[in-house]
């Protein structure tokens, strides 16, 4: 396969990333359809993705709180092109500040018509409310859930219920 000017070669190196006790606790909760987050004992920051310490205060974060299953879009993008080994396009991803959390968490945002990028981008704008939808079969990974937009009428209904 060599053309004389280049030599083909591969990488193919596989890893076993340790999840750690903090990560395990978070992933175990996902199986139970709960999103839990560590809270800084000093400044009270509720952090997602979970970590074992607060970067700002530099103290361990040992307390856990459950965060809400709805939140607000803080940033998003729509990917219409194919990259090697990355998800099949088109897909939308968003950073969502879940109610009760202090930092936004990225995930897919599904069930949005992505055929017209401009129209889809309008639907997904910053400030829009989304809900967490858990997958039927959960394996204790970050893909155990995704986000879906809460349609405006629906959001109002749900908020008034509370």
């Amino acid at each position: 396969m060599n053309d004389g000017m280049t030599l083909r070669g591969g990488w193919n190196v596989e890893y076993n990333y340790a999840v750690g006790t903090t990560g395990k606790k978070f992933f175990d909760a996902l199986i139970e359809k709960k999103i839990i987050a560590p809270k800084c004992s000093k400044c009270g920051l509720v952090m997602l993705p979970p970590r074992s310490f607060c970067e700002r205060c530099f103290v361990p974060a040992e307390e856990w709180v459950e965060v809400g299953r709805e939140g607000t879009i803080q940033a998003f993008t729509i990917v219409p092109v194919k990259f090697e080994s990355l998800p099949e396009p088109p897909y939308a991803i968003a950073y969502v500040l879940l109610d009760g959390a202090d930092t936004a968490l990225v995930n897919f945002i599904r069930k949005v018509d992505l055929s017209d990028l401009g129209a889809a981008a309008k639907k997904l704008s910053i400030g829009k409310r989304v809900r967490v939808v858990f997958e039927k079969r959960r394996k204790g990974t970050i893909n155990d859930f995704h986000y879906e937009l809460i349609e405006t009428g629906q959001a109002r209904r749900q908020r008034s219920k509370k």
Binding site: G23, F83, S85, L86, P87, V106, I142, N143
Partner: peptide, 19 residues
């Protein structure tokens, strides 16, 4: 961008096609 996906965290971020 396949390489640059691996700058992100394997537990919490890579799965979403981040680049």
């Amino acid at each position: 961008q396949q390489v640059l996906n691996t700058i992100w965290d394997p537990l919490y971020e890579r799965q979403f096609g981040l680049t």
